[in-house]
Amino acid sequence: MIDWLAFLAVAVATLVGAVVVVGLYSLGVRLYAVSIDGNVPATRAAKFSAYACFAACALTVLYGIYLIIPAFHH
C-alpha cells in the first residue's frame, strides 16, 4: 500500500543530486579562490578547472531536469 521504495528513491535522488551539485560548485569556488591568489604558478590551470567545475555543475542540473520531464521519455 505504502510505496516505501519510492521514498527511498526520493531520498537517494535528493542526496546524490544535491551532493554532486554542491560538491562541484564548492570545488569550483575553491579552485577559483586559488586562481586569484596570484603568486602561484598554477593560476591559469586552476582558473580553467574552476570554470570546468561550474560547467559540470550546470550540466548536472540540466540533466536532472531532463530526467523528470516525461515528454522526453515517451
Binding site: 526520493v10 535522488a13 535528493t14 543530486g17 544535491a18 551539485v21 554542491v22 536532472g64 531536469i65 523528470i68
Partner: peptide
C-alpha cells in the same frame, strides 16, 4: 540546492 532536488524528485 537540497530543497530543489527534494522537490523535483518528489
Amino acid at each position: 540546492t537540497s530543497t530543489a532536488a527534494a522537490i523535483l524528485a518528489s
